[in-house]
Design a binder for these strands. Structure first.
Lengths: 220, 220
DNA sequence: GTCTATATCACGATAGAC
DNA sequence: GTCTATCGTGATATAGAC
């Protein structure tokens, strides 16, 4: 790998930066390389010097976002504590990661749900992105199972709960204009982010706890 | 207005039908009118006899989906009962609506998050779709507020809870391959749908209820 | 109402000068 | 590494025969 340079971003990094924003807003097929190059301050053909094609650029963007998030989530899971506390740390870390980089949530929601047929055969970048996603999912999956086995959580459906967690975080921060209309204000202000974390914490604390159905199994 | 004809679907209805599936899978910019016409069993130019253009067709599809859902949700809200019971009925109705028509959730998720710049000025179909969405949101908003005022729900943030409900339903059924990978099976089997409803019911029953111990305000 | 052209334009990608 | 010029294709949309 060539050394990172913090001072002035290379063209390559500039392209990745603007591509992230554009793909997040318009999706893969909605973005033209022409506008993308223009936004990066380059001619259209210069993109092909840095990336093999549109698909490769797209997956490299996706990989960057997933890597950024995976690091934070793994760190949150590695902290000591009971499953519920670690789950709340995991959610907080995910919310922070999504809120900090406004394009992330939309890009993820698109990338995960989208169903383009990419012309080229399995790109290396796509495989790496899928691997990162797998690590994220495996981590939260294991945590939920641990919480159930310890009796801290009720006997919830782990996959359903994972889906609910994704929806409550990724969808929320990807919801754009609709979300702001529902919330009656910005999604990304520090106050809105703080309130979101607090609301999720309460919902999960009450909603996942082992309750009347499993009396006596609660532990401190 | 010309009256609908139930017997054999008109070309117009056939187009709407296949357009719904295509737009759901590929998004607005990902769908070409050529493939769309072919899937409907028509020549490409025939589409323009029934619809003014691609944008109008898209919004008419969106409007149909929203109308279908809005009717069910309004009916669920109109049933008598306590707020929690009516909320559970609302969620069940939404899940049923999304599960019954597989393209709906994806189309909605795209339509709500997507941010295309549609060339034409405010289309009538787009305004109608927005109005239906507004009615849906207003209904669930009022229900949550009523539950809080009656003391059935804790003092939750109504907008945050609306967002969570959307994420837990629309995202889930829009999650496609990723969702099936997480769930370890189909999203739309009657068993999966039943379990999803049951899980959401438990989460909301415990998570929104008033009177539980306060989880404590951690700083952050 | 459906069709066969066709117009016009943007797309991704390439070639090659500098 | 960036540029201009261009290729080939497919996009939306239109014109007009039947």
């Amino acid at each position: 790998m060539v050394r990172p340079q913090a001072a002035s971003p290379s063209s390559r990094e500039k392209i990745l930066e603007v591509a992230e924003a554009h793909f997040a807003r318009r999706g893969f097929s909605g973005v033209g390389l022409r506008e993308l190059a223009q936004a990066a301050g380059l001619g259209k053909s210069s993109l092909f010097h840095h990336f093999a094609g549109k698909s490769q650029l797209y997956f490299e963007v996706l990989e960057r976002v997933l890597a950024r998030i995976q690091v934070r989530l793994a760190a949150a899971l590695a902290r000591p504590g009971a499953p519920l506390a670690r789950l709340e740390g995991w959610v907080d870390a995910l919310v922070d990661a999504l809120a900090e980089h406004p394009a992330s949530a939309r890009l993820l929601l698109r990338g995960l749900v989208e169903d383009e047929d990419f012309p080229d055969e399995p790109l290396h970048e796509a495989q790496r992105a899928e691997q990162l996603l797998g690590e994220i999912l495996q981590g939260i999956h294991a945590l939920l199972r641990e919480g159930i086995e310890r009796g801290d959580f009720r006997r919830l459906s782990v996959p359903d709960t994972v889906q609910t967690l994704i929806g409550a975080t990724v969808y929320h921060f990807a919801s754009g204009e609709l979300g702001e209309s529902i919330m009656g204000g910005p999604l990304l202000s520090s106050e809105a982010v703080r309130r979101r974390k607090q609301e999720l914490r309460q919902l999960l604390h009450q909603g996942l706890a082992a309750g009347a159905a499993d009396p006596g199994l609660r532990r401190g």
